[in-house]
Design a protein around this nucleic acid. Structure first.
Lengths: 343, 343
DNA sequence: TTGAAAGCGGTACCAT
DNA sequence: ATGGTACCGCTTTCAA
């Protein structure tokens, strides 16, 4: 059933029916009621593409995932984020278009998206520090919002980010309060902006207590289990091994935990891990590993908010860029202690 | 730059330019060359929506993710699958539209998709045994392909599945060959079709050796870490605890491993785990846990293939449903042994 | 308050 | 080989 058929059925013009359906004021209440009912009854939905063509709005938002960030993609975080974003979109009537693009084709992909006009805006994931995609999109003039931030970009743009610096500073403080002095940072590659910020938080906490960061305890790599595992093994064979780990990724944390447990077995060492992670409450049962968690619901929330932010920007043309900085909700589960504490 | 402008610029009609660009034979080679060049130079891309409206094809495929399957969604498997599918789509010029839909809104979502006409087909994820979505889509007449299969659906439909039965049969055989007799199956909820098939494979292997499956060693649940962890703890306190675990999900496997290691520590027990999992080659280093893996590349491959299958079906109308059954590529990494073996 | 008609940017049929 | 023109299904301006 399309508009033509519906209006023929009602003995009205397409114009009137369209107006009735879209809430224009100049339609009599009686007509509107009739139209609404008929639309409902025939399960009428306007053809998105025709509507898009006529209005110039695609009612869709693109998420571009660089293929190199696959470890990010397969990250539970990503799923939660996307599903939060999906909520906002469906509420506002937008579709979500996912594009997985090889790194060398990023620029082409964006140009294509804007030329093909099948999205009204784009969400940028996994920004690098001086991310070239940002000026590119600004130049193209396609609305976008960044999940995260990119340091060293002069012109303002919309973003939503977790306060990585403060989160890692708090986490480090927490470990310092426990008496740890040699804390190993298992971080993501520093080309990723968030990794840079996390290190800054870590260092700030150390400096506040006049501890000089040991460069041998700083690691940056692709956030895989193997990486986490290897990092622990390597550092545990130092003369002066770390007594605690601060892990930047849930995936790496699996490897870290594994290695820690081995180390505990083999070397009889007692080590603390702290990571952002979730759904690991069970670790409290028998573990001697404190776990530092960012709740899944807060990630969903971030997705929801970023999507909403982009929609707002798209729908209020001429608006200046919007930004939002979220404080990470962190909890720590202790093996022997009571229920997890917020820190 | 749109077609009108481009053709004006070239001094040709829109018709000719369109034909030249779309490879119709009746255009002179010379004209075609000129047109192609101009298009390239002006970075012309046809407006997807106009094209869609004119041709009746949306050039987009929808993936509907039931929100209840979030643990599936956040599964690394899902990311790999999607990224494989993405490859096929971009090669064939399709967009991928992701819809995250609450369970109770599934039906509405499908109806809407077909009415709004913004996808040419749908990929169905996480089919249940007698999945109502399949007859629904068949009735609606929207092309679709299922990732997995649904038992007890009479009319044929397109699907691609891994041979879950044979994979779990092989895995069980492997453990039996190692001498295990009490093997615990940590399975997904049996409303999920794959879980049902996996149990069947497990039972078939046991029965082939005249072993009666112990119902106390059969578990079906939501595939979380906690679930894996709890299952091991519960079963290890049986009078006659299992000596090996066959785990149906990578997420649950993390919890299982964790609990196994604790059990090894606390009870001094030596337990084998087998699961499909990947990127865990490092476990060979110091672990006494055999790990059963399905390679990530094979999952990507599945995504790629299913997408291609759906595209084929869409583009050859009147074609009968296509199906493909993949044998799982499984490898086992042993702690003390040499490189992993395929089984 | 309602309707006719001209787009939106393409494709495809029918002429030439 | 090329061009004119009528759609595709909706919105929106203008006129009644």
């Amino acid at each position: 059933m399309n508009l033509k058929q519906l209006s023929a059925h009602l003995g009205l013009s397409q114009t009137t029916v369209s107006r009735a359906l879209n809430g224009y004021p100049e339609v009599s209440e009686e007509t509107r009621k009739r139209v609404m009912q008929a639309a409902e009854q025939h399960n009428y939905r306007p053809n998105t593409r025709a509507k898009a063509l006529a209005t110039g709005r695609a009612m869709a938002i693109g998420h571009v995932i660089p293929l190199s960030t696959q470890h990010e993609m397969m990250n539970p975080i990503f799923g939660d984020f996307i599903s939060g974003a999906g909520e906002s979109y469906s509420r506002a009537g937008y579709d979500m278009v996912l594009s997985l693009v090889a790194d060398q084709e990023q620029s082409r992909a964006y140009h294509e998206m804007v030329a093909k006009r099948n999205v009204d805006g784009i969400v940028l994931h996994a920004p690098k520090m001086r991310d070239a995609r940002i000026p590119l999109l600004q130049e193209i003039g396609l609305p976008f919002a960044v999940h995260g931030r990119a340091t060293d970009i002069a012109t303002p743009y919309s973003w939503l980010d977790v306060n990585n610096t403060s989160a890692f500073q708090r986490a480090t403080d927490f470990l310092l309060d426990l008496g740890h002095r040699r804390i190993c940072l298992v971080n993501g590659q520093e080309s990723m902006d968030f990794a840079f910020r996390r290190r800054r938080g870590y260092e700030a906490a150390l400096k506040a207590r006049a501890i000089v960061p040991d460069p041998r305890l700083l690691f940056a790599g692709e956030m895989t289990e193997v990486y986490g595992y290897d990092t622990v093994r390597r550092t545990q064979s130092l003369d002066d091994p770390p007594t605690a780990y601060l892990v930047s990724s849930i995936i790496a944390a699996f490897g870290v935990r594994r290695a820690i447990e081995e180390a505990a077995l083999v070397l009889g060492r007692d080590i603390s891990v702290i990571t952002h992670d979730d759904d690991l409450s069970y670790l409290r049962n028998g573990s001697d590993v404190p776990v530092f968690t960012a709740t899944r619901s807060s990630v969903r929330d971030a997705g929801r908010k970023l999507a909403q932010l982009l929609i707002t920007q798209i729908e209020t043309p001429g608006s200046s860029p919007l930004t939002e900085l979220l404080e990470a909700e962190l909890t720590v589960g202790r093996s022997t202690g009571p229920a997890p504490n917020r820190i």
